[in-house]
Design a binder for these strands. Structure first.
Length: 751
RNA sequence: GCCCGAGUGGCGGAAUUGGUAUACGCGUUCGACUUAAAAUCGAAUGGUCUCUACCAUAUGGGUUCAAGUCCCAUCUCGGGCACCA
C-alpha cells in the first residue's frame, strides 16, 4: 500500500511552479485584479519563524483562493533589508552589511520556496539594492522640493547604545525600540518629514478604512487632534508676551497663573535677579532628568520666575511659574493654569499655595485665535547610521543644503572598513572622505552623512511591486493605476508607525498627481502572535523556538505546516504552538490523500453535503475564518469516509483544500484530471428531503421531530405532532401559546 | 487613572442575525487489525445520577416565549494611551 509522502509531492509541485513561472502576472488579463501582500520581512540571520509562516500563509490562502475564483492576482514579495541588526553584526564580525544581507535574503528565499507560496518571483524587491533606493532618494527629493523634508534644530530622542536619533514612534516607554536601552534628549539639527501637514486628512480618513478598530483607534490617538485657541498674555513691566495654548479658552476667568516648560526660550528674559539662580537650577535639573523619571514621578514640581502676567479677561496680575509638567513639544510650551477646572493645575496650585478661583463667567467674545494642535509631531528621519539609504543632499561651503540632482542618483553607500558609530552626531559615512566630495553645478560640496529611517524605505514599496524593474520611474503610472490600491494587507506589527507613514506618502504623491488614490490599503488583516508550546514568547535564550523548517523536514511537509497554522485558532488572536495538533492536521491530510489514491470511488449521491461544504468554506474564507473553513473540510472528509466518495466529491475536496495545502491538492487534482476552478454551490442542493424540527417547552429542548421537508410550512401539523409527543406531554398539560420559528426549524411551547 | 478587547469541557477552540451550547482538532478510554508495537480503522468522551431528569458558557441580577449572544453591576486576564493643557 502506498503512503502519503508530502516531501516527494511538495518537491514535485514546487519544481513545476518554478519552471512554469506559475504565479507571474501582468496587466493584460481581462480578469478583475486583486493585489495582496504581507508586511515584508526584515530577513534576519535566523531565517523564517512560525510567525512569518502564519502571516505569509494568510496572504497565500487568499491569493490562491482569489486566483481559483478567476481573479488576476498579484502576490509579490520583498525584503526590508536596511537596519541595525546587519550593521551591528558587521561591527562585531567585520562582515559587510551588504554581504550579510545577501546571505540572509537568499536563505529566506530558499525557505519561502519550500513553503509553496504563490509568489510572483519576478517582482522580488530589496530595499538596500541601489536600483531600489535610488527611488527612495527620489521620493525624498519630491518631498524636499515641496518643503515637506526640512531641517530643524531641537531636542531629539537619542539612543546612547545605538548612537542614533529616533523618531517618536520608535521610542517605547522611554526606551529604544531596537535595543531597549533608555533614551536621552539631545539637541541636534535633524531632517524631518512634515507629516503634520497631513494630520487632518490622516485622521479624518481613518473612519473610511476596512481595518481592525483597534488599529484605527491607535492611529487616531497617535495623531491626537485638539481644537482650542492660542491666547497672548502681556507681561508686567515688559514688552514680551507669552502665548499659551488651551482647549478651553472659555475658562479664562479661572486662570490664576501661567506655567512655562523648562525648555521655554522666554524664561531667561523674565527671571529676576532674586529668582535667577533658583530657576536656572530647576531648569537644569529638569533637563537632566531622564524622560522616564519625568514620566514616573508625577509629583508636581516647579519654581516661580519672579514675573507676572496680566490675565486679559480679569486684568489681574498672575504669577508666571516654570514646571516640568508642561511639555515644550506640545502646543506652545506654555499654559494658562485653571486650577478650578483642571486636575493637574489644581494639584500644582494646592502644592504651591496659588489661588484657586471659581470660573465666574464665560467671556462673550472668545479670547485668542482659534488653533488646532496635534499630539503627532513631524517625523524625524535622520539616522546617524551607516546601513541605511543615504539622504541625497549636499552642503556648500556656507552650509546651505542642495539636493543631489536626479541624474546623479542613486547616491551609493560606499564600502568602508569601520562601521562603528560614535557620539559625534554623524554616521560612519563621515569617515568615507572620498565619497563625501561631490560636485554640483561645478561647485564642490560635501555630502550629507545621515541616512534615512528605514520606515522611509517601506513607505512606498507596495507601489514598486507594480513595476519593480522600471529604471525610469519609481512606479509606472499605468501599472500602478491597474493594480493599486492594495486590496488586502496582512501583518502583525507596525500598528502605528509604518501604517501611518505609508498613508502619509500616499496622500502626498496623490497631491503630486503621481498616484490615483489617497489611501494605499483597502483592507488590513492584523494577525496575532504564535507563542511557544510552554505558552511563553518564543526566544532563542529560552530555547523554546519552533523552527518551521524543522516541521517540514521532520516529515510533516509544508502543507501540514500551512494548514496547521491556519487551523491553530482565529487568525487575529495570539495562539500557542501545540506539536500534537500538528499531528492531527497531518492525519487529516493523510485521510484526504487516502480517499483520493487508496479508496475505490463510489456513486454515492452526496450533493447536499458537498454543496453545504462549498458554501461553508467559501463564506469562511471570505470572512477570514480560516480555522472554521478547515474544520468544515475535516467534517466533509469524515463524512465521506463513512458514506463513500464519488469523483465529484473528491474534485470539490481538492479544490477547497488547495488554498491551504496546495501541493497535495494539486496532486489530487492531477489524479482526478480536474482543474482548480473554485466550485460554486447551488441553492437547490442545500435543501434536503427531510427536516428536523426542534421542540422546546419553555425554551428547553424536549423533542426532535423528523418530517418531510415540505411539512416545514405546516405549523399546525407540527404543533399537533409536538403536543402528541410522549416526552413533550410530560411537561405540557395545556399550552399557553406556541412560537414557531421557521428559519430556526424550532417550535417553542409555553406551558 | 482613562479607552478598548476577552473570559465556553482536561486543552486549543465552534456557535456568523437572540433560536438544538460544547462543531472541528488534541488528549483520554475501549474495540478491530498485528506475534508485538507503530500506523490505520471504528466507538465513547461537560458534570451529577441507574434511566427519566437536573445542573453547566467568570460572578450576581435583569429583559425575552427563548440569552454564550442584549442590558446593569462585580471580578479576572490581555492590549493601547498615559502630566498632550
Amino acid at each position: 500500500m502506498n503512503r502519503y509522502n508530502p516531501l516527494a509531492i511538495e518537491a514535485k509541485w514546487q519544481k513545476i511552479w518554478e519552471d512554469s513561472r506559475a504565479f507571474e502576472v501582468d496587466e493584460s488579463s481581462p480578469k478583475p485584479k486583486k493585489f495582496l501582500a504581507e508586511m515584508f520581512p526584515y530577513p534576519s540571520g535566523a531565517g523564517l519563524h512560525v510567525g512569518h509562516v502564519r502571516n505569509f500563509t494568510i496572504v497565500d490562502v487568499l491569493a490562491r483562493y482569489y486566483s481559483q475564483k478567476g481573479y488576476n492576482v498579484l502576490r509579490p514579495f520583498g525584503y526590508d533589508t536596511f537596519g541595525l541588526p546587519a550593521e551591528n553584526y558587521a561591527i562585531k564580525t567585520g562582515v559587510s552589511p551588504k554581504v550579510a544581507t545577501d546571505t540572509n535574503v537568499s536563505n529566506f528565499r530558499n525557505q519561502l520556496k519550500k513553503l509553496g507560496f504563490a509568489i510572483d518571483w519576478s517582482r522580488e524587491i530589496n530595499t538596500s539594492s541601489p536600483e531600489y533606493y535610488k527611488w527612495t532618494q527620489w521620493c525624498f527629493l519630491q518631498l524636499y522640493k515641496k518643503g515637506l523634508a526640512y531641517q530643524k534644530e531641537s531636542y531629539q530622542w537619542w539612543c546612547p547604545v545605538d548612537q542614533t536619533v529616533l523618531a517618536n514612534e520608535q521610542v517605547e516607554n522611554g526606551h529604544c525600540w531596537r535595543c531597549g536601552s533608555e533614551v536621552e534628549k539631545k539637541k541636534m539639527k535633524q531632517w524631518f518629514f512634515k507629516i503634520t501637514e497631513y494630520a487632518d486628512e490622516l485622521l479624518d480618513d481613518v473612519d473610511s478604512l476596512d481595518w481592525p478598530d483597534k488599529i484605527k483607534t491607535m492611529q487616531k490617538n497617535w495623531i491626537g487632534r485638539s481644537e482650542g485657541a492660542e491666547i497672548d498674555f502681556g507681561i508686567v513691566d515688559s514688552k514680551e508676551e507669552i502665548t499659551v495654548f488651551t482647549t478651553r479658552p472659555d475658562t479664562i476667568f479661572g486662570a490664576t497663573f501661567l506655567v512655562l516648560a523648562p525648555e521655554h526660550p522666554l524664561i531667561k528674559n523674565i527671571v529676576t535677579d532674586k529668582t535667577k539662580s533658583a530657576v536656572e537650577e530647576y531648569c537644569k535639573n529638569a533637563l537632566k532628568k531622564s524622560e522616564i523619571e519625568r514620566q514616573e514621578n508625577k509629583e508636581k514640581t516647579g519654581v516661580f520666575t519672579g514675573s507676572y502676567a496680566i490675565n486679559p479677561a480679569t486684568k489681574e496680575k498672575i504669577p508666571i511659574w516654570v514646571a516640568d509638567y508642561v511639555l515644550i513639544g506640545y502646543g506652545t510650551g506654555a499654559i494658562m493654569a485653571v486650577p478650578a477646572g483642571d486636575e493637574r493645575d489644581r494639584e500644582f496650585a494646592e502644592k504651591f499655595d496659588l489661588p484657586i478661583v471659581e470660573i465666574s463667567k464665560v467671556p462673550e467674545k472668545p479670547f485668542g485665535t482659534p488653533k488646532t494642535t496635534y499630539r503627532m509631531r513631524d517625523w524625524l528621519i535622520s539616522r546617524q547610521r551607516y546601513w541605511g539609504c543615504p539622504i541625497p543632499i549636499a552642503y556648500d561651503k556656507d552650509g546651505n543644503t542642495h539636493p543631489i540632482p536626479e541624474e546623479q542618483l542613486p547616491v551609493i553607500i560606499p564600502e568602508i572598513e569601520d562601521y562603528k558609530p560614535d557620539n559625534s552626531g554623524r554616521s560612519a559615512l563621515a569617515k568615507a572622505t572620498d565619497w563625501l566630495k561631490v560636485t554640483i553645478d561645478g561647485e564642490e560640496m560635501s555630502r550629507e552623512t545621515d541616512t534615512l529611517d528605514g520606515y522611509a524605505c517601506s513607505s512606498w514599496y507596495l507601489w514598486r511591486y507594480a513595476s519593480p524593474h522600471d529604471s525610469a520611474h519609481a512606479w509606472d503610472p499605468k501599472k500602478i493605476a491597474y493594480w493599486s490600491p492594495l486590496d488586502i494587507y496582512c501583518g502583525g506589527d507596525h500598528a502605528v508607525a509604518h501604517l501611518l507613514y505609508i498613508r502619509f506618502w500616499c496622500k502626498f504623491f496623490a497631491d503630486e498627481g503621481k498616484l490615483p488614490f489617497r489611501e494605499p490599503i483597502t483592507k488590513l488583516l492584523y494577525n496575532g502572535y504564535i507563542n511557544a508550546p510552554d505558552g511563553k514568547k518564543m526566544s532563542k535564550s529560552k530555547g523554546n523556538v519552533v523552527d518551521p523548517l524543522d516541521v517540514i523536514n521532520d516529515g510533516y511537509g509544508a502543507d501540514t505546516l500551512r494548514t496547521y497554522e491556519m487551523f491553530i485558532g482565529p487568525y487575529d488572536q495570539d495562539a500557542t504552538w501545540n506539536p500534537r495538533s500538528v499531528g492531527g492536521v497531518y492525519r487529516f491530510l493523510n485521510r484526504c490523500w487516502t480517499l483520493c489514491f487508496e479508496t475505490e470511488l463510489t456513486d454515492t449521491k452526496n450533493d447536499n453535503l458537498r454543496h453545504r461544504t462549498i458554501k461553508k468554506v467559501t463564506e469562511d474564507i471570505d470572512r477570514a475564518s480560516f480555522n472554521t473553513a478547515i474544520s468544515a473540510l475535516m467534517e466533509y472528509v469524515n463524512e465521506l469516509y463513512k458514506v463513500g466518495a464519488s469523483k465529484e466529491d473528491l474534485v470539490v475536496l481538492s479544490k477547497l483544500l488547495k488554498p491551504f495545502a496546495p501541493h497535495l491538492a494539486s496532486e489530487m487534482l492531477e489524479q482526478l484530471s480536474a482543474n482548480d476552478d473554485w466550485p460554486v454551490f447551488e441553492e437547490k442542493h442545500l435543501t434536503s428531503e427531510t427536516v428536523q424540527i426542534i421542540v422546546q417547552v419553555n425554551g428547553k429542548l424536549r423533542a426532535k421531530l423528523d418530517l418531510p421537508a415540505e411539512e416545514l410550512d405546516n405549523e399546525e401539523k407540527i404543533t399537533a405532532l409536538a403536543l402528541k409527543n410522549e416526552n413533550v406531554k410530560k411537561f405540557v398539560t395545556t399550552p399557553k401559546k406556541t412560537i414557531f420559528v421557521k428559519k430556526a426549524k424550532l417550535l417553542n411551547i409555553v406551558a
